[in-house]
Design a protein around this nucleic acid. Structure first.
Lengths: 226, 226
DNA sequence: CGCCGGTTTCAGACATCTTTCAGCTTCCAG
DNA sequence: CTGGAAGCTGAAAGATGTCTGAAACCGGCG
């Protein structure tokens, strides 16, 4: 789960980023509207936290452009201004939630949980299942029948993406962006290595699920018995 | 678009109902938790506006039961209480938005628009069919009845062109240009080799579709049963 | 500091796709 | 009927993409 934070107060942005990461999200931050829009448009984020007052381009404009480009990523607007007209404008531009500073970390987290819950594909159930596999989100544990193994952070992220996509192919590019982030210099081989780790663990679990390679395209899960 | 209003202050409920109807929604109101839950469970509502303090069953309980019953209808919680713990509890029970009284009608309407705006994105399962064949674009898979084979990149490109052209003859030159590109030194024989690959795979699929050769011109698909 | 789990890097093995080529068949004109 | 052009196809070589074990790296922790 990857969160983009667009907030010009660098210290607050850093605090938010820490808060998110402490709670199991991957988070990137940027500090002006243009960068925010660019990053948001990559489409790799599941949630965007957007300040209203920003250098270069204000939050409303960012939001309008983002929606104009067809993105449906949930956006949580964050601002010191508490005017009614702002809130209405924010919501009508396509924001999904409006939180006014100062706010409690707990409230922000609750909002995010609420937004995530709304996205059917990302629904934050405690566990995710596919065929004979069960992925427990809170313990990073993958199990099959009685056996189970612990996954590392990146193994988990990758398995989660694969399980969410089910039999739909997911490209290496997408995996790279969603797991390593847009400003990482990781390359295809990193994905391959982690796919290999996961296959080893699937083997060890004696799961019937396989990770299928679609050459030149990407990967997807396959359940031979279905 | 049908809205359910669950609010014990009868006058406020009536006002809300009017507000909704003035804005093009159908709205029903009820005044205690039990009635609210019953109505909500009918599943006919697109949005539920839910007060927290209610006779017979409080709003949190209504919400929990509603979610417990598997309903995913967007819920906007409405209350005079502004305590952080309430807001967090409301959101974590499954509310989608939390509005505190007093609020402006405009804000309520904006929230509702924001909740309604969400719509599930369509799954992009692009496929191409011809007679008994199905070509899946995302997995490079060609199938016929229960059988299926994977195509390589060039096999896929060629099959796609043939299927797009249906019974229309496509020349070797076109195939060369479209598949190998303008400045490739591939020659006719490359096309022939790939046609041969495809024929082998069609055979293997037991498809009734044949690739017909038109001497000196090119190729096209043919379905003998049509 | 040294250990540890997690992550990244790298190189060689491996698999698959693509090209090439030679020998074959088919078609048709003379 | 015959020869040559056009088309087909199996095999092998060449190119490219993917897998994976091992080692290096790294940040946190005792």
């Amino acid at each position: 789960m990857r969160v983009l934070i667009v907030e010009d107060e660098v210290r607050l942005a850093a605090t938010l980023q820490d808060l998110m990461e402490m709670n199991g999200y991957n988070a990137d931050a940027c500090h002006d509207g243009e960068a925010g829009l660019d990053n948001a448009l990559t489409g790799i984020y599941d949630i965007i936290i957007l300040d209203v007052m920003l250098p270069k381009m204000d939050g409303f404009t960012v939001l309008k452009r983002l929606r104009g480009a067809g993105s449906a990523t949930p956006v949580l607007m964050l601002t010191a201004r508490d005017q009614l007209s702002d809130r209405v404008e924010g919501l009508d531009c396509g924001a999904d939630y409006y939180l006014t500073k100062p706010f409690e970390p707990q409230e922000l987290l609750a909002c995010i949980r609420a937004l995530v819950r709304r996205q059917p594909e990302l629904r934050n159930t405690e566990e995710l299942t596919y065929a004979d596999l069960r992925l427990e989100k809170n313990t990073f544990t993958l199990s099959c029948e009685a056996r189970s193994v612990r996954l590392s952070r990146k193994e988990f992220d990758m398995m989660e993406l694969l399980m969410l996509n089910r039999e739909l192919v997911i490209t290496k590019e997408t995996l790279l962006l969603k797991i390593w982030g847009y400003e990482s210099d990781a390359e295809d081989n990193n994905v391959e290595v982690y796919i290999s780790f996961l296959r080893k663990k699937l083997d060890h679990l004696h799961s019937r699920v396989k990770i299928r390679t679609i050459r030149m395209v990407g990967y997807c899960l396959a359940d031979p018995d279905s």
